[in-house]
Amino acid sequence: MILVNRALRAAFDRLLWPFHALPPIVGLVAVSLAVSIGMLYVFKWTSNQTKLEAVKRQIHACLFEIRLFRDDVPAILRAQAEILRHNSRYLALSLVPMLWMIVPLVFVIAQLQFHYGYRGLRPGEDFIVKVRLKEGWERSGAAASSQGSSRPAATLEAPAGVMVATPAVWMPAERELAWRLRAQEWGDYELKLRLGDEEYAKTAQVSAAVRRRSPVRLAGGLLNELLYPAEEPLPRDSPVASIALGYREDSISLFGWPAPWIVAFFALSVAFAFALRGRLGVTL
C-alpha cells in the first residue's frame, strides 16, 4: 500500500502541476474530463454492451408504450412494471463495471481530496499542530518522560518561515500535545517533532496554490493508508498515533456558490460522461 500511495502521489503531483497556479476549478475540469473518459472506457470494457443496449431498448419501448396507450390504465401499469424489471436488469448489468470503477475511483478521490479539500496556510495565519500518542506511550523508550514530570519529552521544531508560537499544551487525559504556530512566509516546510530520541516529520504548506496537503499523518495501517495517502505513514512501532495540522477545509466556487470540491467533481464527471459516451461508442 505504501508503494502504491507513493506512486499515486508522484503521478497526481505531476498531473496536476500544470494547474497549480490556476483557479482550482480549471484543474478540476481537466481532471473530471480525464476521469470521465477513463471511466467510460472502463465501463465499456467491463460491461456487456450488447445486453445493456438491449435492456435500454426495452426500457425505451416501455416508455413508448406508456405514451401510446395513455388511455389504457392496465397497459400503462404493465409497462411500468416492465420498466422496473428492466431497470433492475440494467442495474445488475452495471454492477460489474461499477465494481471495476470503484477501486480506481477510491484512489483518485483520495488523492484529489488532498489537492482540493484543504486551503493552504497564509503568511500571518496561526494554526495548531496536534500530536496524539498511543496508549502505553509511557513504556516507549522513544517517549521517555522528562525527569519528575508525567509529560512526554517532546519538542516541535520549525524552519525559518514558520514560528512555534507557544509551548505545547499537554493533555494527559487525551494523550495529546498541542502547539500554536504561525506561518510567516510562503513556502513548503517540514516541521520536526522530537519525542525522546525519535524524530518525526510533518509537512506544512504556506501556499495559495493547488497542491497536495496532508492535514494528518497517521500511524501505518491499511485503512489509514487507504484514506490518508497524502503523506508517508508513521512507523507502526512509533508511540505517536497521529500528527495533525490544522489546515482549513476549502471549497470551490460553483456559479458563485461555494461547494465542496467533490460536488463539482461528480457534477462535471457525469456531464462529461454523458457528453462523450456517443463519441467513444459507450452505452451507459
Binding site: 495548531i128 514530570s149 508525567s150 509529560r151 507557544t166 509551548p167 505545547a168 499544551v169 499537554w170 493533555m171 494527559p172 487525551e174 498541542a178
Partner: peptide, 11 residues
C-alpha cells in the same frame, strides 16, 4: 479548556 499541568498555556 485544557490547562497544561506545568506550563502557563491552555487549549
Amino acid at each position: 479548556v485544557y490547562v497544561d499541568p506545568d506550563l502557563p498555556v491552555a487549549k
